[in-house]
Design a protein around this nucleic acid. Structure first.
Length: 508
RNA sequence: GGCAGGGUAGCUCAGCCCGGUAGAGCAAGAGAUUCAUAAGCUCUUGGUCGUGGGUUCAAAUCCCACCCCUGCUACCA
């Protein structure tokens, strides 16, 4: 039975042969936004991220750097943790696959699956491209040339242990049929469904050609395949198999957030492994898209990799967090460009939101002695109330379904409405004529901003904290369930003008 | 090749399910204002809705054909 008041969300564990870049930051920020949102909704939330540290590639990278693989991993892990801290990522736990706990969990899970009769010794053979380190299928290349690098491949045969994936084909298929929202976006669901229908073949889950990995319990000459190892982090990260209370509380995961390239492993191999071990599959796999850079594919060789630091020096952490989730619908591919970033930052964050906060706070200072005035509920602007009411449901609905960009669009409707409102009622004239309606206007504005700050807290925690200080509500307990009702800011609350929240960026 | 999705203003997209001669944001241009980060507000320019046929009083929207683009088509992670 799924505990409805808990929320368990994960990112993939990142491979430690590269430093965190915009792509890994994207997944991690999205997960953080969701985790923060769920916390605001009152859920006991577990947000897991970490690093994948085994495998041949790591071994090679380490050797060429003159390091032990673990040393290399340690260094990169430090980088990851630094960057996540910088980006304000509030994870519950950072797991490393080289941890003893994790290794034990992997071996435990492996034994379970073995005891269930789903592991057997066999031979894996095929045409292998040494350069790309991958087997090719005759379907993708009948002439036996590597489809990626066009090099001639060699025939290899190795003795491996296999997992009986094929045994779970029917179960997997009916699971997919019964859980239409298991994989999102739905286009990905359709792809996977079609592939599973074509049939499942057993997968090799051990390697004997190198030893940087977790030793296979039933044959010490083999290490466990990195994917088997890596996927298990979702269990070991919450205490499997020993910390039964925590594990029982949080499993199954509500969502595994991933990039689209690793969908197969997460949506098919992983659930089948879990079925074999008698565990429930995760509730949802959400596969997001890729970023291009000025419409070009991002790659090391092209030298156009964007690192978080490149962005936050100029646009701030929240500028980055906002842009990534606002620019493209979550799930689709999108283009990263500093032009687009600057436009959104200046227009939406600086002009529309930042300036709204500024003009509101300054007016309260000037016209109301820096304190939020009393208001007359019957005089509250109807269009503002209507906008707040109509957006509330849809914002929360969008958030629940990872439609971050639409949630933000809705929030910006409120912001734009507020700017219009000011221009319509012209508080500076009301002040001149000493009309009492001014009080209601100022109250409405500060209160609307308070509500906006709650909505935006998951996206831009640092800026919203600053903004709430300016509004004088920083010590208030924030909750989505209770904080959205109009009329909570207390008359007499002192506002204080601070520096612009999002100072304009001029060049670049 | 097979399966899936898409081709709508300069750009990014909504509308298509439930037919009635096109919408938003950005970009561009103009105006009135001043509380404000020269921000905000108002207005304007701008599309024969991939191509060709068909159904219909009426099609971006339904049907057929074609062209083009993208994704998936299993073990580097």
């Amino acid at each position: 039975m799924i505990n409805s008041r808990k929320y368990y969300i994960t990112t993939p564990i990142y491979y430690v042969n590269a430093e965190p870049h915009i792509g890994t930051a994207y997944t991690t920020i999205a997960g953080d936004v969701m985790a923060r949102y769920k916390r605001l909704c009152g859920y006991e939330t577990f947000y897991l991220t970490g690093t994948d540290e085994h495998g041949q590639k790591i071994l090679r990278s380490a050797l060429s750097a003159g390091l032990e693989p673990k040393e290399l991993a340690d260094r990169v892990v430090t980088k990851y943790k630094e960057v996540w801290e910088e980006l304000n990522i509030k994870y519950t736990r950072f797991i490393r696959t080289t941890e003893e706990k994790h290794k034990k969990a992997v071996q435990f899970l492996f034994r379970k699956i073995d005891h269930n009769g789903d592991i057997y010794k066999g031979k894996y053979s095929g045409w292998y491209c040494t350069a790309c380190e991958r087997y090719i299928t005759l379907k993708e290349s009948p002439d036996k040339k590597c489809p990626v690098c066009q090099r001639q491949t060699e025939f290899f045969e190795e003795e491996n242990y296999f997992f009986k994936l094929s045994k779970y084909q029917d179960k997997m298929l009916s699971y997919l049929r019964e859980h239409k929202d298991f994989i999102e976006p739905s286009s990905r669901y359709n792809e996977i469904f079609a592939r599973v229908k074509m049939g499942l073949e057993d997968v090799s889950v051990s390697r004997a050609s190198f030893d940087w990995g977790i030793t296979m319990p039933i044959d010490e000459k083999h290490v466990i395949w990195v994917w088997f190892d890596a996927l298990t982090n979702y269990l070991s990260g919450i205490g499997y198999p020993d910390e039964t209370d925590n594990f029982k509380k949080f499993w199954p995961a509500n969502v595994h957030l991933i990039a689209k390239d690793i969908l197969w492993f997460h949506s098919v191999i992983w659930p089948c492994m879990l079925m074999s071990a008698g565990l429930e599959p995760p509730c949802k796999i959400f596969a997001h898209g890729w970023w291009t850079m000025n419409a070009d594919k991002i790659s090391k060789s092209k030298g156009n990799v964007v690192y978080p630091r490149d962005v936050i020096d100029k646009f701030g952490v929240d500028g980055l967090r906002y842009f990534l989730l606002r620019e493209i619908p979550f799930g689709l591919d999108g283009d990263f460009s500093f032009t687009a970033l600057k436009n959104r930052y200046n227009n939406e964050l600086g002009n529309e939101l930042g300036n709204l906060v500024m003009r509101t706070v300054v007016m309260v200072e000037k016209y109301s002695n820096s304190t939020v005035p009393q208001y007359n509920p019957s005089e509250v602007d109807k269009t503002i109330m209507e906008t707040l009411r109509s957006t509330q449901k849809s914002i929360c609905d969008h958030m629940e379904h990872f439609r971050f960009s639409l949630a933000l669009e809705n929030i910006w409707e409120i912001i734009r409405m507020s700017n219009k409102y000011i221009d319509n009622v012209k508080p500076w004239l009301l002040a001149k004529e000493k009309l009492s309606h001014l009080n209601t206007v100022l109250y409405t504005l500060t209160e609307t901003l308070r509500i906006i700050s709650i909505y935006l807290m998951p996206f831009m925690p640092a800026s919203m904290e600053t903004m709430r200080k300016q509004l004088g509500v920083s010590d208030e307990n924030i909750s989505i369930t209770e904080g959205l009702e109009f009329g909570q800011i207390k008359p007499g609350t002192r506002v204080s003008k601070g520096n612009p929240l999002f100072p304009r960026v001029e060049d670049k």
